[in-house]
């Protein structure tokens, strides 16, 4: 059967479909009652939440630095600064991309924007995971000082070095665990997202989809 014959079958089918659905299905546009619409807004709310938390974190870090008179605490906070700025900048970039999304634009353009947004989100989570492992010692120093007034430097240099080494070793260990036991997290969407991100699978898939979009635009696919 040729594609044009399929077109005829399609026309017959859709004629029946119209008649059936006109009597059976009512399309709702009420946002409050629509569970699907809520799920679509979840990503947007999550990005806003992250941006607010990251912005607040940056502000608190600035306040901490301003109030410190001991250089060792200022140094710990300054080590965290570039990471905090990078994560906040990514949140702002995601919000900007989200604001520019108009589903009424051409399909290829919107799909590319959605894929770019997804790649940025994946990279940001990777960055957060990496920073939280590499920088957990200065983070602990700053948090303990800010919240309880505790000085973790008093535990000694060997403690600090051992913890930095632990954080560094944790990166490949986490990667290996995610690769070996990642399937155990497949039931939850968040767990799957995290495992895909740690192993780099999510980013690799996003790159493949981006390349497919480019090929489609060029007429290769």
């Amino acid at each position: 059967m040729e594609l044009d014959e399929m077109k005829q079958a399609w026309q017959q089918m859709t004629g029946r479909l119209d008649a059936l659905q006109a009597s059976n299905v009512k399309l709702r546009t009420d946002m409050q009652k629509d569970k699907v619409a809520r799920s679509m807004r979840r990503t947007s709310l999550l990005i806003w939440f992250e941006a607010i938390v990251n912005g607040a974190g940056l502000l608190l870090l600035g306040t901490f630095v301003a109030r410190q008179d001991a250089l060792r605490f200022t140094m710990a906070a300054l080590i965290l600064y570039p990471a905090a700025i990078a994560i906040f900048a990514s949140s702002v970039a995601q919000l900007t991309m989200l604001a520019k999304l108009d589903y009424g634009d051409e399909v290829l353009a919107i799909q590319k924007k959605l894929e770019s947004l997804r790649m940025l989100r994946l990279r940001t989570v990777q960055m957060e995971l990496l920073f939280s492992l590499l920088l957990w010692v200065p983070l602990a120093i700053v948090l303990m000082r800010a919240m309880f007034g505790t000085d973790l430097y008093s535990l000694g240099t060997s403690w600090l070095l051992a913890d930095i080494a632990l954080g560094t070793v944790a990166i490949p260990v986490l990667w290996l665990l995610a690769r070996c036991f990642g399937s155990a997290f497949n039931r939850s969407a968040f767990g799957r997202f995290l495992v895909d991100d740690v192993t780099g699978r999510g980013l690799a898939e996003a790159r493949i989809r981006m390349a497919a979009l480019a090929r489609f635009a060029e007429g290769q696919e």
């Binding site: 619409a37 009424g104 919107i110």
Partner: peptide, 30 residues
């Protein structure tokens, strides 16, 4: 999915500009 599309159509309707595209073209895109 049909409900999801209808909801998105309504949310995007504010940005629909009939000088830029026909309604059906815009609807297919969304």
């Amino acid at each position: 999915l049909a409900q999801e599309i209808a909801a998105q159509l309504w949310r995007s309707f504010g940005s629909f500009d009939e000088r830029r595209a026909k309604f059906t073209t815009w609807m297919y895109r969304v």
